[in-house]
């Protein structure tokens, strides 16, 4: 009996804690949505109109029919998808080698690749900006994509290696006996079996690319070429209190694709993200 009152108290405290945390994490997003749905007048009424009396979608249509925003969104989609494909093409063979071959210094190679992730993108952008401007790759989606790829390769290599480790080696061996060479084992057997791992690596890289700011901010100056991260930053800089509701709508539009992509593959992404940290 005593135990059960105690459990009930524990349950109560758990609920209180979870409620507080829920408010903390959801409030900014609720506020953003609330602002985005308001008319200009209601913006000035603060929290009293959390649920707007006269909700409107005008802010969204203003953003989506503007001349720049659809272009920003398209640029972000293009850059992040291209770089995700590039990442996979570059990382998959290495992941296969790390998963299947035993060679000297394998652990060191893998750690070395991971260690690059510790380096701030800002550090490499200092010289890269100089190279890119000398090569004429400023304002080029090609140059920007290449940098995105480099930023994504370490994690994708680790993710795919982890996934391929789960595919039995006996499949490789059987195919080798049947006369396949390593390349065709990789292309015909391992890659198709890795589809879920490849898909989650793809989505994670797309989300990372969608969130990119620094690289395109530096490498792209033409307004018609910038992706949404840079576009919305520059747009925010030109706004004032009277257009905050439009900025909120723009912000929401820029965030929602990443959220949807994440939610669709939440389970896969989470197991991939934590595997490295928990295994140490």
């Amino acid at each position: 009996m005593k135990l059960s009152t105690r459990d009930r108290l524990g349950d109560f405290l758990s609920y209180v804690f979870m409620a507080v945390m829920f408010v903390f994490f959801s409030w900014p997003l609720i506020w953003l949505l609330s602002m985005a749905l308001r008319t200009r007048k209601e913006v000035f009424l603060g929290v009293a109109r959390l649920i707007p009396k006269y909700p409107t979608l005008d802010n969204f249509s203003a953003v989506l029919t503007s001349s720049q925003f659809p272009v920003y969104l398209f640029n972000a989609l293009k850059l992040s998808c291209l770089s995700a494909v590039g990442c996979l093409i570059i990382a998959a063979p290495a992941a296969y080698a790390f998963s299947r071959f035993d060679f000297k210094g394998k652990g060191a190679w893998m750690l070395g690749i991971l260690a690059f992730q510790m380096i701030s993108p800002l550090v490499i952008m200092v010289p890269l900006y100089r190279y890119m401007s000398r090569l004429g790759l400023i304002d080029s989606h090609f140059g920007t994509t290449m940098v995105y790829i480099a930023l994504g390769v370490p994690m994708v290599t680790w993710l795919l290696k982890g996934y391929m480790d789960g595919i039995p080696k006996s499949l490789d061996e059987a195919a080798l006996i049947d006369g396949c060479n390593r390349l065709s084992v990789f292309i015909r057997i391992i890659l198709p079996l890795s589809t879920p791992g490849v898909a989650s690596a793809f989505i994670i890289t797309v989300i990372a690319g969608w969130s990119q700011f620094l690289v395109p901010f530096l490498l792209i100056t033409k307004d018609s070429l910038v992706p949404i991260g840079v576009g919305i930053f520059q747009y925010a800089g030109t706004q004032n209190a009277s257009t905050i509701q439009v900025l909120a709508a723009a912000c929401l539009i820029s965030v929602v694709p990443a959220i949807i992509a994440f939610l669709a593959l939440q389970r896969l992404i989470l197991s991939a993200m934590t595997a490295g940290a928990v295994k140490g």
């Binding site: 945390m21 994490f25 900014p28 997003l29 989300i207 969608w210 969130s211 700011f213 991260g229 840079v230 919305i232 930053f233 912000c251 820029s254 965030v255 990443a258 959220i259 994440f262 939610l263 939440q266 989470l270």
Partner: peptide, 11 residues
């Protein structure tokens, strides 16, 4: 909490 995590830094 995870949705907050996916929100890009600029946003």
């Amino acid at each position: 909490a995870l949705i907050a995590w996916v929100v890009p830094g600029i946003a």
